[in-house]
Design a protein around this nucleic acid. Structure first.
Lengths: 326, 326
DNA sequence: AAAGTGTATGTAACGGGTTACATGTAAGGG
DNA sequence: CCCTTACATGTAACCCGTTACATACACTTT
């Protein structure tokens, strides 16, 4: 690998001049510039970004902290972040934290030592201070933890309300909500949206807990249907949960959507692949990822942000696990 | 952020001594060591990995080149690579190439400039030279392109044979194979396995082309069933394709597995979530990712490799889209 | 003609580590 | 008692860019 010195020697100029040409900064005569450009081409020189990093204390890398890339919600998000990052010349380091405080701390340390330029957080086991003390730009995605950190999230409360109202419009009279983990903001908000609607309208309902895995969803659902055979709709806090509900329901020969309506949340690709295809409150996942990445890069490049909290709209994807009201 | 100089000053020693303590190299008295350790603790010093990279020309980072993280085959792979990398102190840079030669070249350049320590390739649009000229360790995952590069793949040919034989044992007499893209090694091998078995056994068959997307699979399958209504089994080259076949088959009210058996390939989590659950030739995806990462790190750390080509076994996951022969 | 301004280029310090080499001390061998 | 060797530590060069600063020349300006 040739270095800037090789280029300087080949072009008969000093390294400073080469650097000036590279960075288009300072005065350089046309002649010198041409020589340098030719040297660069002839030697196939590429500036070394590590050396640059060392001097500038930046790395053109951003970190994406997620619980687990194998959770189907995250690949599309990661993809969006990566796409945007690439167009701005950044690379993305993916960190699967498993919501484990130790792993998170380990990553944070490693990233900081690499002069990571910014972080997108979809996980926050550590306290807000731990992130803010890093002294680098942050974006919180799908959770919020400090009013100084820009946030991207979707209207979970409103989406949950719409889903619930839709089930009611379609004639359901006893609705179960399978909620996600406590203190996870989106799960809490979706629960609240559901609760408010059923209470306002005086609809029979039941809420059960679940984590965001299909196995847990199936277990919970089996118990639920045993106890309450008259449940005629389920609002699941995620599509994965909904997939579990669907599977159990079909196993015990419930007709869907005639006997039981199901509506999920998230809008992951899985929903479409199921039969019947899952009706769901879709979040614009790609858009959320892309937006976070852009917000992060804006901060890194010291551009002003229009807003600090971005809330994107959800839309119900009407598919086959609900009865149409039209 | 304190530097090694701050530590040296605080501990009343030279930077060389601090470095010796950090790297456990060379002679250091107990006394000096204690002072340094205390200084490190007091100042909360963390060595700067960029500076280290610059000197050592390594980065403790590995690159994972994949076509698209939103393709459900890759998240689990990426997860495995990341898990192994983390335990050895490496971080992973994910690169979605979309099998696009330009993007690949762009990544390769960026990674090289960052002193990336090694690359796991699941994509190879560029010619083998382009990778080997990088002068860094490589592992080819699920495709092979040079006999100097260690490879991890599964027994695609054998798996395809087993799948086909299984369909025949279960009484199918007209089998369709929906194959993946040409010149993609796994797709070619699976096709060959299928072809050999049906020809050996003189079974009626048809092969159609498809890329690895569900939309394409559905389109192809619709045409297929229109033309050949007596097809009684499909061997799909991937689970995504199989999901598409299943969806189309259900739409036209074929009973599964009574009228039509379906078997996929890959063993992605989606298969289990479908109803009926998809029978498939499962690859040990996590294991393959973990193995590649370990092979790569072994090369980086100059440890000898036992083997250059690792072929892992596939296993049929007997689920609900095939008739049991037991 | 002296001073000021814009252009052009080179030298060297810097960023934060690592390590070759020089130097120095103490212990052990003959 | 001198020499070798192990131990201990510091100085400075090095990795590869970036940039502050010094220098120098060609024009203007007054």
């Amino acid at each position: 690998m040739p270095t800037i010195k090789d280029v300087a020697k080949y072009a008969n100029v000093s390294v400073a001049t080469v650097s000036r040409v590279l960075n288009k900064k300072g005065y350089v005569s046309k002649e010198a510039e041409e020589n340098v450009l030719k040297a660069i081409a002839d030697l196939n020189y590429k500036p070394n970004s590590v050396a640059r990093s060392l001097y500038h204390k930046t790395s053109k890398m951003i970190g994406l902290l997620i619980p687990d890339i194998s959770n189907p919600f995250f690949p599309e998000l990661a993809r969006a972040v990566e796409d945007v990052a690439l167009t701005y010349g950044y690379t993305v380091v993916i960190c699967n934290t498993d919501e484990d405080i130790r792993k998170e701390a380990q990553y944070l340390e490693a990233l900081q030592q690499k002069y990571i330029d910014g972080l997108i957080l979809t996980t926050n086991q550590l306290s807000a201070d731990n992130y803010e003390n890093l002294g680098i730009p942050l974006v919180a995605l799908d959770r919020q933890f400090s009013n100084r950190v820009p946030t991207v999230s979707s209207k979970n409360y409103e989406g949950a309300r719409q889903a619930t109202e839709y089930l009611i419009e379609n004639g359901s009279e006893f609705i179960a909500h399978i909620r996600g983990p406590y203190h996870v903001k989106p799960a809490d908000d979706r629960y609240q949206g559901f609760k408010d609607v059923v209470e306002e309208q005086g609809i029979a309902h039941i809420v059960v807990d679940c984590d965001f895995t299909m196995a847990s969803a199936m277990e919970v659902t089996e118990g639920l249907f045993e106890k309450y055979s008259t449940i005629d709709a389920v609002f699941a806090s995620s599509d994965i949960i909904a997939a579990g509900v669907l599977k159990v329901a079909k196993n015990i020969n419930k007709r869907i959507p005639e006997d039981l309506q199901i509506i999920g949340f998230d809008g992951i690709p899985l929903g479409e692949m199921l039969t019947p295809a899952l009706t769901t409150v879709a979040q614009p996942i790609y858009k959320m990822g892309a937006l976070s990445a852009r917000l992060l890069i804006k901060q890194i490049e010291k551009e002003p942000l229009d807003l600090i909290n971005y809330e994107v709209k959800t839309t119900i994807q009407y598919r086959e696990t609900t009865r149409s009201d039209t």
